[in-house]
Structures are given as structure tokens and as C-alpha cells.
């Protein structure tokens, strides 16, 4: 008798299947990949000003777009898709097999990461080519970029799975999840310069992870001299890591506690 396959190996296989499933929905692929580019084009054309010496709005906006990509591809996408999968009986079917639930979660995270990687590459290429985006040259910035992307993906996935228990079924999911995401984007300084938002909005945003992902991405794409213009007069990298990690743990805990394999 062979042993049942390992959780991580099955997680990788699930990731592969999630990616296949995603790429077969052509419209979704095009939308997901080009949505950030379209937004960059719109905002880049509307706001041609510079925010600080040498910092264009586009430069500022790219950081926000990458961070909100995590929220769209991770949190929003998962919190809407899991209720749909429940409706179709997909999760119940998996539940009847020896597949560990952890592998299912890992598969989701992998597909979010893959989607993010493609989105970011395209956004950076088009941003550099057409919107005067300057890419950082220091390796340390790219290191920051990588850890925020990975931690952000894990965090957004876990919270997406946790939030997927809120909608009763697939039909209502989008109406419940999307407003949360849009409000969070406005509050977190994705579309506007964060420090120009009202103080109470900044304080609300500081509770949630998107503000920290956005600020973290700014620390990658903006010159270090800009740090003095942040709320705390610093990039707060350590605090960012800590807060994202705390949300990841909370998300995982809630995801495992509340996960259902069929709709109520």
C-alpha cells in the first residue's frame, strides 16, 4: 500500500489546475491583466502633475496598482469564486477525496501569485515604455518588492478564503465583496495621494492590509527621499511586515474555522 501523497505536492498540483482553469476563461484573463494598465493610462493622463520633485503621479500610482492587484486577484477573486465553486459542487466533490483542505488553499495562493506575476510584468513594461515609469535599480528595493508580493499574496489569499464564508451563495458574492474592495482602495491611497486624504480615512485604512501593501510598494518605486512625506515620515517597513503577517495569521485562522464545502 502506497502512502497518500503529501500536502505540499498536492498543493502544487492544485495550483496547476487553478491556473489552467483561469487561463481557459479568456475574458477574465484579458480583463485581469489589462485592467491595471487601463487604469494607469486613465490616471496617468488625467494627473500629469508631479507629487514631489522627480515623482510623477504615474510613479505613485503604479505602487497602488500593484498593491490593489493583490486585493483584486487575491481577496476579491477568491471571495467571489469560492461561493461559485460551492454552488457547482466542486468543493463538496473535493471534500469527498483524500485531498487535504490545506492543499486546496495552497493551490489558490499559487494561482494568485501566478496571476500577479503576469500582471506586474505587463504593468511595469507598459508603464516604463509609455508612462515614464522609472524602475528601481538597487537590488534591496527588488528584495522588498519580492517579500511584499509574496507576503501580500499569502495574506490576500487567506483573507479571501476567510471572507468567502460571508456570501450565502455565488450569485450574491460579487455584490458583497466588490464594495468592500472599492472602498478600501479609496481609503488606502491607491487612487489618491494617501497623505491628502482626511485623517479619519487614513486611520481607518491603517487597520487594513491594503494601506500597508500600497505603502510598501511605494517604498520600492519612489525615491527614499519621499519617505519623509509619508504619514510616519518613514517607510515603516518593519511595521508593514508585522501587520501583513498578523493579517495572514488572522486570515488563516478564520479561513480554517469558517470554511464550508457547500452553501447554506
Amino acid at each position: 500500500m502506497n502512502k497518500v501523497p503529501g500536502t505540499l505536492k498536492l498543493g502544487l498540483l492544485r495550483g496547476q489546475m487553478e491556473i489552467i482553469q483561469f487561463t481557459r476563461q479568456k475574458e477574465a484573463v484579458v480583463f485581469t491583466i489589462f485592467f491595471p494598465v487601463i487604469l494607469l493610462a486613465i490616471f496617468g493622463s488625467v494627473f500629469k502633475n508631479t507629487i514631489a520633485p522627480g515623482v510623477t503621479f504615474s510613479q505613485y500610482f503604479v505602487a497602488g496598482m500593484i498593491a490593489s492587484g493583490l486585493v483584486n486577484s487575491g481577496f476579491q477573486n477568491i471571495a467571489i469564486n469560492i461561493p461559485l465553486e460551492r454552488d457547482m459542487g466542486a468543493i463538496k466533490r473535493l471534500r469527498g477525496t483524500p485531498l487535504p483542505i490545506t492543499s486546496y488553499f495552497i493551490g489558490k495562493a499559487i494561482s494568485v501569485f501566478a496571476s500577479m506575476a503576469v500582471q506586474v510584468v505587463i504593468l511595469l513594461i507598459i508603464g516604463t515604455a509609455f508612462f515614464g515609469l522609472n524602475l528601481p535599480t538597487e537590488p534591496i528595493k527588488w528584495l522588498t518588492f519580492t517579500w511584499i508580493l509574496i507576503l501580500g499574496t499569502a495574506c490576500a489569499t487567506a483573507l479571501g478564503v476567510a471572507f468567502s464564508s460571508v456570501p450565502k451563495n455565488g450569485r450574491g458574492a460579487s455584490a458583497i465583496v466588490s464594495p468592500v474592495v472599492i472602498v478600501l482602495q479609496f481609503f488606502s491611497g491607491v487612487f489618491f495621494v494617501f497623505t491628502q486624504l482626511p485623517g479619519w480615512m487614513q486611520q481607518v485604512a491603517a487597520i487594513f492590509p491594503l494601506k500597508w501593501m500600497t505603502q510598501g510598494m511605494r517604498s520600492v518605486f519612489l525615491p527614499d527621499s519621499f519617505a519623509s512625506q509619508e504619514v510616519a515620515k518613514s517607510w515603516e517597513s518593519g511595521r508593514t511586515a508585522l501587520i501583513l503577517f498578523a493579517w495572514l495569521i488572522a486570515g488563516l485562522f478564520l479561513a480554517v474555522k469558517t470554511f464550508r464545502w457547500e452553501n447554506k
Binding site: 457547482m88 466542486a90 463538496k92
Partner: peptide, 9 residues
């Protein structure tokens, strides 16, 4: 089980 409609793609 009864009536699943998953895995379409």
C-alpha cells in the same frame, strides 16, 4: 453525489 456542475473548463 447528486448533481454537480463543476470542472467545466
Amino acid at each position: 453525489l447528486q448533481s454537480a456542475s463543476d470542472a467545466g473548463s
